[in-house]
C-alpha cells in the first residue's frame, strides 16, 4: 500500500504518495532532488544524512516518510537566506572546516540546531552536539572552531 503524506521541506509543502517503508533521505534525494543530504551508512551512525525534524537533528536514513507527515523538515539547501550563506556556512568556509565536504551538510544541520537552541554554547557543548557526526578528513578541530566562531 502507499500512504499520502505531506512533507514540509524547507518551508515548502510536498504532497507525496509513499511506500510506508520509504525513508526521508531517499525521498529528499530521489524525489525532491535535494541531494545535499548525503547518504552513507544507512544505520544512523555517520550523520551524513542529518536533517532537522521540527528543528531537531535526526538521521533521515532512519526516518520513515509517514513518520514525518505534516512535520517540518529542514535540509542544508534551506540554510541560505535570500541567496546569502548563513553565518555558520560562512564560518565553515573561512575556518577550513570543509575538506571533502561529504559530512559537511550533516555537521551544518547539527550545529544549526545547536545554535538555534543555545546561541552561546561552550566548546564542550559544541563537541557534545557533534559527537555523533563522523568526519574522516578534518579531525574535527576546524569544524569545532567554525561553530565556536559564530557563537558571538
Amino acid at each position: 500500500m502507499t500512504v499520502d503524506v505531506t512533507l514540509n521541506v524547507n518551508g515548502r509543502p510536498h504532497s507525496l504518495s509513499v511506500e510506508p517503508t520509504e525513508t526521508v533521505v531517499g525521498i529528499l534525494r530521489e524525489r525532491l532532488g535535494l541531494t545535499g543530504t548525503h547518504k552513507d551508512c544507512s544505520m544512523g551512525v555517520c550523520g551524513a544524512c542529518t536533517v532537522l525534524l521540527d528543528d531537531r537533528p535526526v538521521s533521515s536514513c532512519l526516518l520513515l516518510a509517514p513518520q514525518a507527515d505534516g512535520r517540518e523538515i529542514r535540509t542544508v539547501e534551506g540554510l541560505e537566506r535570500d541567496g546569502r550563506l548563513s553565518p555558520l556556512q560562512q564560518a565553515f568556509l573561512t575556518h577550513g572546516a570543509v575538506q571533502c565536504g561529504y559530512c559537511t551538510p550533516g555537521f551544518l544541520m547539527t550545529a544549526t540546531a545547536l545554535l538555534e537552541e543555545n546561541p552561546k554554547p561552550t566548546r564542550s557543548e559544541i563537541v557534545e552536539a557533534i559527537k555523533g557526526n563522523l568526519c574522516r578528513c578534518t579531525g574535527y578541530k576546524k569544524i569545532i572552531e567554525a561553530v565556536e566562531s559564530v557563537t558571538g
Binding site: 510506508p20 517503508t21 544507512s42 544505520m43 538521521s59 536514513c61 532512519l62 526516518l63
Partner: peptide, 18 residues
C-alpha cells in the same frame, strides 16, 4: 524507529505491516 529502520535498511527485517 531508530532500531527497527536499521534492521529494515540491513534487510534483516522486511515488515509487512507497520
Amino acid at each position: 524507529g531508530v532500531a527497527l529502520v536499521i534492521l529494515m535498511n540491513e534487510k534483516l527485517v522486511e515488515p509487512s505491516w507497520l
